[in-house]
């Protein structure tokens, strides 16, 4: 991508806006003062937004990387002859599990394990596994039969076939699963504030409880931008993956 095209993408502008709000939300103080003359303080002050963002990002990243690694490994296992018997059960679990509302999973799991960030990560990880497994299995099974047969026919070992042929071909589908998983994780982690995790959702809940609308708006805007920015990064990654395959 040329410098000019990079410059023109919404990704850059959304990123800049997010960074600016994250670091200098106080510049908007006059706007908030005009809209909410009676509320003080106007800018959330119990923690810096940067601090909240880093905590939020850490939750999502740890859970997301974990879920991607374990989910893809599980999908590989059930699509090999050795794990074939588990294929149906894993598929059922992934499909049924996704009908569970993520917030219900979080609300049930976290108090059962204990409040705070660590249980939130575990809940996000477990729930995040489901779309990744589902997509990775679909992606691996979607490799055309003739391609798999040709790979065997030219003498690739099953390991070489997996890494050189099946995983690269399934990569866009697997990435789509990770994208869904991470989008859900960002939203669910926001609600994690109610179970003691520190996230960009914390100002929203504090604002709702103390009836301070500016806090709600600040948190909501940052959370929304964070989610949109992440999704845009995934879109870019997907684009890059497909371009590398000449598609």
């Amino acid at each position: 991508m040329s410098g000019r095209a990079w410059f023109a993408t919404p990704l850059l502008w959304v990123g800049l806006l997010f960074a600016a709000l994250l670091l200098r939300m106080d510049l908007l103080r006059p706007v908030f003062r005009w809209a909410f003359p009676e509320t003080t303080p106007l800018i959330y002050d119990r923690a810096s937004f940067l601090e909240l963002f880093v905590a939020h990002l850490t939750l999502v990243a740890v859970a997301g990387f974990g879920a991607a690694a374990v989910g893809v490994a599980l999908a590989i296992f059930v699509t090999r002859p050795a794990g074939g018997q588990f294929r149906t059960m894993v598929g059922t679990l992934a499909a049924v599990g996704q009908t569970f509302p993520p917030v219900a999973v979080l609300a049930v799991a976290v108090p059962a394990i204990g409040f705070g960030a660590r249980p939130t990560v575990i809940a996000l990880f477990v729930y995040g596994l489901l779309p990744i497994i589902e997509n990775a299995v679909a992606g691996l099974e979607g490799v055309p039969h003739d391609v798999r047969e040709a790979a065997d026919g030219v003498g690739l070992s099953s390991r070489q076939r997996l890494f050189a042929v099946e995983l690269p071909l399934a990569a866009p589908v697997i990435l789509a699963g990770i994208r869904v998983s991470v989008t859900i994780a960002i939203g669910t982690a926001t609600i994690g504030s109610t179970v003691g995790a520190l996230t960009l959702g914390t100002p929203i809940f504090d604002g709702l409880v103390a009836n301070k609308l500016p806090f709600v708006i600040e948190g909501a805007v940052l959370v929304a931008l964070f989610a949109i920015l992440t999704d845009m990064l995934f879109a870019r990654l997907d684009h890059w993956l497909r371009r590398r395959r000449g598609l």
Binding site: G187, T190, I191, G201, I204, L213, V221, V223, A227, I228
Partner: peptide, 17 residues
């Protein structure tokens, strides 16, 4: 897609105003 990406609690919060 953009709407679907925004976490629910953020959208609820943004609609309050």
């Amino acid at each position: 897609n953009l709407l679907q990406t925004v976490p629910s609690i953020a959208l609820f919060g943004l609609l309050i105003v």
